[in-house]
Simulated assay, not measured.
Amino acid sequence: MKFGHTIIYVPDVAASLNFFEKAFGFSRRVLHESGTYGELETGETTLAFAAHELGELNFPTGHVAAHDSPQPLGIEIAFVTPDVPSAHAVAINAGAVELAAPKEKPWGQVVSYVR
């Protein structure tokens, strides 16, 4: 078994694809003609976005809309780069909200968090 993909339910699939293209340099694999599902070309794994309407179909008792949640959800999607501060700045300039500025962890890894 291997990790297949991550799907993030969002209010605007096309806008989410555009953001990840601008902020992180990914290219678009597909945007369904309905506009409710799209994927980015990320290598061996797939990063996908689905409209909240699909979430309502898949989760009949409801789901938490990440963009409306006052706190970050208990999930992260990690991207690896040799220059975290520059990548962090590009993401902020593309419209991300900073959750944690770049910081070196005790084990030497530099990390930052954006939403």
Rank of each mutant, 00 (worst) to 15 (best):
E44K: 09
E33L: 12
D12T: 01
Q109L: 11
V90W: 06
V114H: 09
S86H: 15
E104G: 08
I77M: 12
H52W: 02
Y113F: 14
E104L: 10
F19E: 01
E104R: 15
H5R: 15
F49E: 10
E33F: 10
F20P: 06
G43T: 08
K22V: 01
V111G: 11
S112G: 05
G62M: 01
V97A: 14
L47H: 14
F3P: 06
H32Q: 11
I75L: 11
A78E: 15
H88Y: 15
E39G: 10
H32V: 01
G35L: 00
F26H: 04
N93R: 15
A15G: 13
K105Q: 14
L17W: 07
A14L: 08
F24N: 04
A65L: 14
A65N: 14
P102K: 03
T81S: 07
L73W: 02
H5A: 11
R28L: 03
L47R: 03
E76I: 03
I92P: 05
R29N: 14
S69D: 12
A23W: 06
Y113M: 11
S16M: 01
G25N: 13
M1S: 14
A91I: 03
G55E: 04
A50H: 12
G43M: 04
S27A: 10
Y9A: 07
N93H: 10
G43K: 12
E56P: 01
Q71S: 15
A96S: 02
K22S: 13
D83A: 11
V97E: 14
L73Q: 15
P72Q: 07
I77K: 03
Q109P: 04
I8S: 02
A91Q: 10
P82T: 14
V84P: 05
G38H: 02
K105E: 15
